[in-house]
Amino acid sequence: MKIVIRDLEIWYNSIKALSNISLEIVDGELTFVIGPNGAGKSTLLKAISLIVPPKWGVIYIDGRDVKLYSVRELAKTIAYVAPHISRSIPSTVLDYLMTARYPYTSFLQFKEDKTDLEVIDKVSRQMNIIHLLNRRLDQLSSGELQRVVIARALTQQPKIILLDEPSAFLDLRYRLEILEHIKNITRTENLITIIAIHDLYLASLYADKIILLSNGSIAACGNVEEVLKEEVIERIYGVRVELLEVKGKRIILPVEPLTLSTPQQNT
C-alpha cells in the first residue's frame, strides 16, 4: 500500500493552508509530520482523510484517487484521530468504541456482532483501557482519553492511521509504550502510519521518515538524519538546538529561542 500526493493545495476560505505538497508515503513505516504551529500538520492529515477538500491536487491510495473510493471503503481504510473529541453529551467508552465498527456492519444492523465486540476487547487490552470501558468520556483523565481515542482508530482496523498529536497528554511511560505499540502494529500489519507531533524527541526516536512543514509547504523530507539537522531546525523553528547521540539515534534538544535572527515562521 502506498499514498501518493501530487501538487496538493488547500485553502480555508481565503487563507492558504497548504501548497505544493507532493509526497510518497509507504507502508510498514512510521512517518512523522513536524513543524511549528500553523505549519499545516493537521491540515495535511485531514486532507488525506478527506475531511478537508483540496483545492488543487490529487491524493492516490494504492494508485486510485481517494475521491473514487466509496465512503464505506474509505472508513475501512483510513482512521484519523483528532486530539479532541466532543464530550458535551458524554457516552461511555464502550459506546464510543462501538461506533468505530460501523463501517463493518450494515447501516440498519441493530445488534452488534460478537466479532466486533471481540475486536474492541483485544484493542482495549492492548491500550490498557479495558477497565475504562464502562466509564463515561467526561470522567476520564486527559491521558486516559488520549488512549481511548487511539484505541478507537485501532478498533476501526484501518490500513492507514493518521494521529494528530497523540502524545500531548500522556505521561512518559505511556508516550513510549503507545508509540512502541503503534510501531509494532505498523510493522506487523503493514500499515501506513502518519503522526503529526510537536515533540521532536519522540520523532527522532521512532520516525522512519520525517516530513518537516513550514508555512504550508514542505521544508524538508526524508529519513531522520536528513531532516533533523541543526541548521534546518534552527531556521524553521527559531530555536537553538543541540544534537545528542543516544544509542545510535540522533536526538534533538532545544536549548533557547533564537533572538538574533527573526524566525522564518511566526504564528
Binding site: K46, S70, R72, A75, I78, Y80, H84, I85, T99
Partner: peptide
C-alpha cells in the same frame, strides 16, 4: 463531533 461523523461518510 463533525469531523468524527465525516470519517464515517
Amino acid at each position: 463531533g463533525d469531523e468524527y461523523a465525516k470519517q464515517f461518510g
